[in-house]
């Protein structure tokens, strides 16, 4: 589990650099991503992939809003990088793979799941964005 955390952090760190995030913020982007991935891993066995994606995205968005308030940077910076481990890249691959292999049953299952995960990520972000900004001002003052 610790290895997973560290590796996902390294993955997000690399992508933060790839998308030209400011040097001093890269580590926070990485932390956001790793936290999201870890909570997904912990929740997935109990709640299933879709609910786990929703909750993990929710937590990750809150975390990126905290960082954004504390470090006075746009939320996008942390959110965009942090979301990468949760984006259903594997789903896209398997869906197209089953489609080509003419395995329609598994194609439908995988396709629906990918679609649901994308929806869950959307809902997770939306719920976390709906929390009023005033709550996050605490972190802003604490950091000054």
């Amino acid at each position: 589990m610790i290895i997973q955390f560290l590796v996902s952090m390294l993955a997000c760190l690399s992508f933060a650099i790839l998308f030209c995030a400011p040097r001093n913020q890269c580590i926070y982007c990485a932390l956001t991503g790793a936290a999201g991935w870890l909570s997904y891993l912990l929740l997935e066995p109990a709640a299933g992939a879709v609910a786990a994606s929703l909750l993990a995205t929710f937590l990750l968005t809150i975390l990126s809003r905290i960082f954004a308030a504390a470090r006075k940077n746009p939320v996008t910076l942390y959110l965009v990088i942090g979301i990468f481990p949760l984006v259903p890249g594997a789903g896209i691959y398997y869906t197209s793979y089953y489609f080509i292999m003419n395995d329609m049953t598994r194609f439908a299952v995988k396709g629906m799941e990918t679609f649901k995960i994308a929806g869950a990520i959307a809902l997770g972000i939306i719920f976390a964005l709906a929390i009023p900004q005033s709550l996050f001002h605490i972190f802003q003052r604490a950091h000054k």
Binding site: A11, F15, V80, I83, F84, I92, Y93, I121, I125
Partner: peptide, 20 residues
């Protein structure tokens, strides 16, 4: 390998921006 390597292409940023 393929799943790892398509990650730079996967539209994570477009999806996030669109939701926002």
């Amino acid at each position: 390998i393929v799943i790892g390597d398509i990650m730079p292409l996967v539209p994570g940023i477009a999806l996030t921006t669109s939701i926002r």
